[in-house]
């Protein structure tokens, strides 16, 4: 089983973009250990020559015509979606915070 350190939990939190307190790190570390000990049952399963699942009912490449026939959302819905963003620009559109410093 992988060794779960404070650093590993902090690293995952950083990758997942979830802020964590010191207390949460300790709690999560314990949870990770328990869950991964449970998951370790997989180590004993022999998967030599077994293909991984890609789609469970065997659908492949669900294609459709490259035509603009999909019905667009009615305008009012567009507005409803847009106006709910925390930042809405004066001339419409969703405002996002600065990404590149």
């Amino acid at each position: 089983m992988a060794e779960i350190s404070d650093e590993l939990v902090r690293k995952m939190a950083q990758l997942a973009r979830i802020g964590v307190s010191d207390e949460e790190v300790q709690q999560l570390k314990g949870d990770f250990e328990k869950i991964l000990a449970f998951v370790a049952q997989l180590d004993s399963v022999n998967v030599e020559g077994v293909e991984p699942v890609t789609h469970i009912t065997g659908l492949e490449n669900a294609t459709r015509n490259d035509a603009a026939d999909a019905k667009p959302l009615p305008a009012q819905d567009h507005d409803l979606l847009e106006e709910q963003a925390p930042g809405v620009a004066d001339d419409g559109g969703v405002r996002v915070p600065r990404i590149i410093p």
Binding site: L42, V45, V47, V50, E51, P52, V53, I56
Partner: peptide, 8 residues
């Protein structure tokens, strides 16, 4: 590994 066991 889990995706392979899922096949099994």
């Amino acid at each position: 590994k889990a995706q392979r066991v899922r096949s099994l």
